[in-house]
Design a protein around this nucleic acid. Sequence first.
DNA 1: CGCCGTACGGTTTTT
DNA 2: CCGTACGGCG
Length: 736
Amino acid sequence: MEILQDLNPAQQDAVRHVEGPLLILAGPGSGKTRVIVHRIAYLIEHEGVEPRRIMAVTFTNKAAKELRDRVAALLGDMAGSLQLGTFHAICARILRIEGEAAGIDRAFAIYDDADQVSLMKGVLAELAVDPRKFAPRAILATISRAKSELATPAGFSAGVRDYFGEVASRAYARYQTLLEENNGLDFDDLIMRTVTMFRQNDSLLQKYQQRLLHVMIDEFQDTNIAQYVLARQFAGGHGNICVVGDPDQSIYSWRSADIRNILNFERDYPGAKTVLLEQNYRSSQNILDTAHAVIVGNESRKEKTLWTEQGAGAQIQVHEAYDDLEEADLVAAEVKALLSKRTHRSGDIAVMYRTNAQSRALEEALLREQVRYRLVGGTRFYARKEVKDLLAYLRLVHNPVDRVAFERVVNVPPRGIGEKTLDELERWSESLDLAPFAALELLAEDRQPPRPHRLAARAETALLGFHELLSGLIGSSRDRPVGELLSALLEQIGYRAFLLNEFEEDGEERWENVQQLLTLAAEYDGLTPEASLPQMLEDVALVAPSDEYNEQADSVTLITLHAAKGLEFPVVMIVGMEDGVLPHMRSFDDPVQMEEERRLCYVGMTRAKERLYLMRAFRRRLMGSSLRNPPSRFLKDVPPELIDARRPGRDEERESRYREPSLARMRPGGGAAGGRTLVPSEAAFAAGDHVRHERFGDGVVVSCMVTSDDQEVTVAFGNGSGVKKLLLSYAPLEKV
DNA sequence: CGCCGTACGGTTTTT
DNA sequence: CCGTACGGCG
């Protein structure tokens, strides 16, 4: 493939602009990745820039990998030395190399969500704060926001205005101290510490500014303040900064992404060139028009019109189901219908939803219908208990002061170190101002140190046993790569036997996960022993578990709308098109958040190339209770003339109008595709009306509830059928 | 100390 | 509804 070939004039414009700031406002499907790829290739081929002097920051590691592959397709292995990655991965790399000068121990651990919560719980206990009044996660979210705005504990406390802030401020200070004692960095620290390191060390910054001649940032609408400042630092010398984004696809403000970064780019970088990419190469016109009709509902946005040279394409399919289970059946039925027509393969189809919890019903339905699927995200591999435990061991080997890791594994498998013993050890180690493991070291070296603690002989032996295990591993980590280290560990703690014993039901499955981790670890055995362990730990913390091995496998993708950003599929089905789900109920009282929900819907719709299905359920179970959600307000924005007027589902099923959901689900073949009759908006029955039902016989109406487009009739039937809630559009009820 | 029972609270979205 | 957190017992 030739550079610049097959690019439209606007795209070529973007590729050719190599000096100074460049803002690319790229609509969905406008070939922005192509532009980035060609721009990188152009810089290398035409401008003679060395690949290692080009940095491209992506939103996910997967996107970085794709970028590398596509540049490699143009230029061959020159692509190898490009600086590619997420902000987090790039910062972690820089801090490993340069951090020592800024007081960061090379062996730092990266604290994930669960580690942070565990640390925060300890902090709240210490501060005597009731975790039910101030949720650890809420406090962590506040701290995260502060860090993403580069606020230190002192800086944050200066801006505190209410009691929650006051508590958060004290928690932040203590949390940060603990983090530092543990030699741990959380995700926000990776960015913030890099920025502050560069601020304090100008010659170091200059070194990087001179090394990096070009900085490119993708998904710029989703960067936060700290990332913005970092980008500015990188580009400070030469000013060659190219940012690519789309304000309409900003969906991460909850993670402190600041849309002003892209809106104010031209102001912050005077002389910046702006390129608009508005031609869409992905979706049919009908899909674009639908997405556009939704996004124009946002007040605060600059109008931009997407257009395509492709035809109108198929109409939008809007389907309605009784409940979430039937919705899932509907999805499975539609998927099977598409597959049986042989126009699409499973891999062409994605089902998207607002919350991860929605994936469950879908999984079950697809499993039942024997449709291959691939769940993106979900319960992550690295979040499994057995995997986390083993990783905590490895973390501890690498960074023995990591208290969170220590506490996690000190008694796994059980070796007689209970709460009491741990308490005692902690009190003692704290009095010595040492990490628990360092205190054990002392205990092991000399059995008569000054120790104002009372440990039972048995407990002491257990602790010494743990110390011996760990110091042995630390010793061998110097000359054995991580794969070998891990298998030695498994052997020594008898982990297989432990799993099979402890978890009779799913012990085998857990052991398989362990073996998968072992396979993964073995991939690092090619590195030097010292490099392999930290590299693996870093990848595990920052690189999402790779679906690569089954990426080729032909299967339906189940994915959240957030995670679908940047992807495309011939067929997209968005489920849960209900007020309360999409838009999520948590955004009802905040117009700003509501606009983000709208953008999220827009992002989902614009993933579709050929066919777009919008599904909703009348009723949805959530945490035990059952909700009745009205149709999504976004659904109402879809132009009616673009909606496929044909009734969904197969013909023969439309015949029988009655469908009791639970029975429909159990029927072989799912058969939940729903035909609906029009329902009057006034109550069809009044309480006390006598009615007759095909199957349940005669009954008396208890109530009749009118919803946005249906009615739920509660009827007390005689002869043992009891009280039933029925949907008017499904149930064949007649007045007697 | 570890096992087993019950009560409770939690799910928006992720690097 | 489901996983986890705590309390009582062996």
